[in-house]
Design a protein around this nucleic acid. Structure first.
Ligand SMILES: [Zn+2]
Ligand SMILES: [Zn+2]
Ligand SMILES: [Zn+2]
Ligand SMILES: [Zn+2]
Lengths: 161, 161
DNA sequence: GCCGCCTACGTTATAAAATAACATCATGCC
DNA sequence: GGCATGATGTTATTTTATAACGTAGGCGGC
């Protein structure tokens, strides 16, 4: 199932459950260790479709566990999750968001609404193709393209037209 | 004159002089105040074609002035320069770089070499067009697109083939 | 010129984001 | 069990960015 098109009006519990199931499967397949801590951080990243900062996740984690965790705990878990392609880091926000299509090859492109804060992942081949073309013209070898588009989502445009 | 195609082999003094001249002209035209401090920060941003962090600039500034400046001094100057479109902020690096085409309408797209650290600004309409198309399809109103492509520049590919 | 307004700049303190260094614990293989 | 590897805990520190408040300087109205 693809990511919800409308982040504010859908069964988000399903998103979370789905993400965790896929993560379990992928990690098992790869022999990667999705430990309890990492799984919990993944779940906390999926709290919503708004990118979350590491320290926000940390706070949630501390609250859940009843004791205060260290920043490094979260950063290490996030590092693992990003490596496994389960989570993306949004550079322009210093924040993390669950990947909508883990396992598939993609580079991570996002439409980020400045009003509601929701970010939608779009892995559109046309953008990637445009980047690849231009890079090729200049002899530049593409490693990791970052595309983060700020603006207003449909819902928020309707609210303040 | 366009930005140098090869950042490591060109008359960079000319880049700097050119950038300052254009900045003077643009600010005069707009009635914006390019003060001595701001002009100096702009010059320091143009030290090279490698994006520079605010604190690196701060250090240079302190050294020039003989006394230590405060971070805010630099951040405020950078804020002005970014507003005026004279400098871009690279989100994925927390760093700043001089704009290759100030005055012209453009969104800022970069090819960043992970080996030598140089960043080349490419304002290619094809990338922007691809983003606009996809955004339009989804009813997303684009405000500020961020495109930062990490990889290896031609020179650095030759060095380690 | 003088006044008042607005903007820039200075100063100090603090927040937010990320990493370093080192110790300890868990897991699984032999 | 013993050992190697990788995960987590703990403490301290670095890097990046902003808040709050005060001062100074240009600029136009009068
Ligand atoms: Zn959801
Ligand atoms: Zn993804
Ligand atoms: Zn140059
Ligand atoms: Zn530019």
């Amino acid at each position: 199932m693809p990511a919800a098109t409308n982040p504010t009006n859908h069964d988000h519990a399903h998103c979370i459950a789905d993400a965790l199931t896929r993560a379990d499967a992928l990690c098992a397949e790869r022999g990667a260790r999705l430990t309890a801590l990492r799984r919990q951080v993944l779940e906390l990243v999926w709290t919503s479709h708004r990118p979350r900062g590491a320290y926000a996740i940390l706070e949630d984690l501390s609250q859940r566990e009843g004791k205060s965790a260290a920043p490094l705990t979260v950063y290490r878990a996030l590092e693992f999750l990003v490596e496994q392609g389960l989570v993306h880091r949004l550079e322009s926000l210093n924040a993390y968001i669950g990947c909508a299509a883990p396992g598939a090859v993609h580079s991570g492109q996002f439409l980020v609404c400045e009003a509601c804060g929701n970010a939608v992942e779009i892995d559109d081949p046309r953008i990637r193709a445009a980047i690849d073309t231009i890079a090729a013209e200049r002899g530049f070898q593409v490693d990791r393209p970052t595309v983060e588009v700020r603006g207003r989502c449909t819902d928020c445009q309707e609210k303040t037209p």
